[in-house]
C-alpha cells in the first residue's frame, strides 16, 4: 500500500518518492544483478542503470504485475544486455588483437564469489559460479533467480513471463548441465 503511494508520487515526478523506492529496493536489485553479472563493480553500474530505467519508464507500469516482478524483469533484462555488450567488446578486442592492436580483452575475474556465501562454502561456490557463467541465458536466469535471489518457481515464472512447468524444466536442465560441467572440471583437476 505504501509502495503503491510511492509509485503514484513517482509518476507525478516527485524526487523524494524516487529516493524512497531506490533505498527500499536497491538491495534486491543489486543482489539479482550481482548473481547474473558476477562482478561487484559491474553490478553497481547495472543497478544504477536499472533505477534510471525505472525513473524513465515508471509511467509504463500499469500495476498488472507486482512492482517487484516488474523491477526484477528490468534488472534481468539490463543485466543480460550488459553481458551481451561485454561479450561483443571482448570479441572485438580479440579480433583487433589479431591485427596487432594493443587492445586487451576486458578483465574478467574467473573467481567470483558472492559476498553473502558462508565461509565454509566459498570454494564450492567459486566453482559453481564459474559453471553458472557457461549456462545458456534462460537457464542461467532461472537458476540464479531461484538460488541466489531465493524466489519460488512461481515467482521466477512471473518474472520470466512463463509457466511454472517451464521454470521447473529450465532449472532441472540447468542442474544437469552444471553437474556435467563440474564433473568435467573435477576429472580435469584430479
Amino acid at each position: 500500500m505504501v509502495e503503491q503511494l510511492l509509485i503514484e508520487r513517482l509518476k507525478q515526478g516527485e524526487e523524494s518518492a524516487f529516493k524512497d523506492i531506490v533505498e527500499s529496493r536497491q538491495g534486491m536489485v543489486y543482489n539479482t544483478v550481482l548473481g547474473l553479472v558476477q562482478n561487484a563493480e559491474d553490478a553497481e553500474d547495472v543497478t544504477q542503470e536499472v533505477f534510471i530505467k525505472v525513473f524513465e519508464s515508471i509511467r509504463q507500469f500499469k500495476g498488472e504485475s507486482a512492482f517487484s516482478t516488474w523491477l526484477y524483469r528490468i534488472a534481468v533484462t539490463t543485466s543480460l544486455e550488459f553481458l551481451r555488450k561485454k561479450r561483443r567488446k571482448k570479441r572485438f578486442a580479440f579480433v583487433t588483437g589479431l591485427f596487432g592492436d594493443n587492445n586487451q580483452p576486458a578483465y574478467d575475474p574467473a573467481d567470483f564469489v558472492h559476498p553473502g556465501i558462508q565461509l565454509d562454502n566459498r570454494e564450492n561456490a567459486r566453482m559453481l559460479f564459474q559453471a553458472i557463467k557457461k549456462l545458456p541465458e534462460n537457464q542461467r536466469v532461472a537458476f540464479s533467480l531461484h538460488k541466489v535471489d531465493g524466489l519460488s518457481y512461481q515467482e521466477v515464472a512471473q518474472v520470466m513471463e512463463t509457466t511454472v512447468a517451464a521454470v521447473e524444466s529450465l532449472i532441472h536442465r540447468a542442474r544437469q548441465n552444471l553437474k556435467k560441467m563440474l564433473k568435467d572440471h573435477y576429472n580435469e583437476n584430479r
Binding site: Q26, G27, N31, T47, H114, I117, Q118, A125, K147
Partner: peptide, 10 residues
C-alpha cells in the same frame, strides 16, 4: 553451496 546465502547490498 548457495543455500542460506545472505543477500548482497551495494
Amino acid at each position: 553451496s548457495l543455500d542460506g546465502l545472505t543477500p548482497a547490498e551495494p
